[in-house]
Amino acid sequence: MVGHGLLRHGAKVTGRAGGLNRTAPAAAKHRIGRAPYAADVSDDDLVRRLRLGDESAFAEAVNTYHSSMVRLAQTFVPSRAVAEEVAQDTWLAVLKGIDHFEGRSSLKTWIFRILANRARSTGAREQRTTPVDLTDEATVDGRRFDAAGAWSDPPAHWSDEVVDRLSSGPLVAQVRAGISELPEGQRAVVTLRDLDGLSSKEACDVLGISEANQRVLLHRGRSRIRALLELELAKR
């Protein structure tokens, strides 16, 4: 499926790229499946090498960002295969645009912004996207408070052992499923902020939304996932 997509897109590009007459990349030194690069690879260095046509720099960028890009794209498009295609198109846009990258945002934010825009327009074509819903949504079910707004059914205590257990195995799988069921805007913001670790400003840059909207979406997304965990823990 994905391989087919790659060939198809690759074929489209060949004609256009033929005239670019770039210098051959330096000997490829990349290794497959290495751990994502940490912050020690600075944007400046990576951008410089990408501009020089260094294939190992491209491999590094792919190793660092591709999986997160596919995950974010899945927020907006109906399938994993389409998300892979969007990510692949984004890489082409990155290669074409890297000479114009001005470094006003981080490389990651810049790449994610290109990706989010493409994924959203693809999603709109697939008629999946819905407008950001900012209508009222209670953080906690209102039935858990008394008439004065005090807890009548307060949250049960999560012991330290319970909290330690949260990040292991089955509950993480539940959380993954819960994220994929969040409304689009909440899912995108939770993914960028809590899964990818972007700042609120970066998340706003990527999605083109205000800080206030971003905060509402983050709040609701986190609230839903907390409620899901509460429900799962109550079953155990």
Binding site: L20, N21, P25
Partner: peptide, 19 residues
């Protein structure tokens, strides 16, 4: 995880792009 074949596919795309 990034599948090795995904990386390979993207590198092929890269080489085509670079002509």
């Amino acid at each position: 995880d990034l599948a090795p074949e995904t990386l390979q596919g993207l590198l092929e795309l890269y080489r085509q792009f670079r002509g």
